[in-house]
Structure formats: C-alpha cells, structure tokens
Amino acid sequence: MKHIETKNVNAYYGENHVLKDISLTMKANTVTAFIGPSGCGKSTFLRCLNRMNDYIEGFRKEGDIFIEGEDIYDKKVRVEELRQKVGMVFQKPNPFPKTIFENVAYGLKIQGVKNKKILEEAVEKSLMKSALWAEVKDQLHKSALSLSGGQQQRLCIARTLAVEPTTILMDEPASALDPISTAKIEELISELKENYTIVIVTHNMQQAARVSDKTAFFYMGELIEYGKTKDLFTHPKHERTENYITGRFG
C-alpha cells in the first residue's frame, strides 16, 4: 500500500532549482532513508512532505505529493492538520524552554485539549514510546533544557508522537548526538516502525544501512537511485551512488 507518493516534484528557492523531477513512493510502516552530499536537496524534499517550506520566502514547488491518498498541497488541505498527521523531528534537539510535561502536551494543547487527565495520559504514553519515561517520570515539571542532548532529542520525538501522527519525518536526528545517544535513537526508530511510517534524512551511511528498509540517493537536486537499502549499498546501479557510498566524495 502506497503511503507517500510524489510525482514530478520540482522546487525552487528564488532562481535556484533545488529539486528536479522527484517521483517516488514509500510504503506504510517502513523506514526510508534519504542520503546524499550536503546541498543535494534531501532536506528540502523531506520538508516538502509536511509543507515546512511554506513560510520560506521565495520558495516555490511544482508537482504533486500524496500522503495516504490525499494531495497535501491541495487548497482544501489545512497545513496545521497535515502537520499533526506528518510530524517532524529536527537536526538539533529543539525543546521549548518549558517543562518536560509542557513540551509533550504542547501539540494537544494547541489543538484545544484542556482535560488534564487526557493530557497526563498522552504525556505518559508518548514518553513511554520514546523510551524516556523511566528517566524523566519523576521530573516532569523540570525544565526540558535541563536534559542531556540525547534525552532532549527523545523528548522531541515524544512531543511529536503525542499528537498521534501516522508519519514521522526526521531530519538528521542524531547528527548532534554522541554515539550512545545515537544508538538509542536508532533503536527507537526500529521500534516505532511498527506503528509509523518513517522518513529519515542522514549524512551517515552506516546509519542509513542500519535503520532503513529503502534508501534514496540524492545528488544536485536529482534522485539518482532509489531501492532496497540492502541492494543500494551492496550493488549500486549508478556510478555516482557507488562513488558516494564508498566515500569518494561528499
């Protein structure tokens, strides 16, 4: 079943043509990794999937993107609802300068949920899912900024899970973390796969190989190669892909 489908997506920042004719599909409950050298368009493409580029001045997109069968750039789609369904985790942990509880409850609160019990349950559930509950359950009302970097990133994942998305976009979620924290995040991704569709941008090829089912290689705004992760890393079809994964450039 096609969960995400993009058709001939082109994107521009002013004059710069940053995405060229990207068409691909992703299945539900899989992890897809986007790899490629910096500036190749992988992050831009990821951000198209929940319209995070909308507020960027001079950004323009052509082509269609469907998530769960819905054209997400259709005029009828409310971008706020889309982002509740398609959550995002960013490169650097970016908790709000609020308490741990408030961070996780934020998404529900902005939807108008006021019932304390519902909020408490949702916070607990989300923190469990992101494997942070045990570490923070006694300090829910402490500032989120007091957590370590790895914990902050798992908090950001919990925050995203709290609004019950179907899809989670991760933009180099472990690039700012130490190896142990990175391992925890990767483990978490594998667990979350059961219930969510995950798209992850990474510059770390071992990471892509470890966590993803399929991998897409981007270069200069083009999708060079897309296929099963195992195949792509062992038998790349294109020379550029091979050069990149063997570390000859990038």
Binding site: R78, E80, E81, I110, Q111, G112
Partner: peptide
C-alpha cells in the same frame, strides 16, 4: 473537532 479552523481564524 474544528479547532483547526478556529485557530486559523
């Protein structure tokens, strides 16, 4: 649940 509409307004 049309909070989204309200929020947008």
């Amino acid at each position: 649940m049309n909070n989204t509409l309200k929020n947008r307004l």
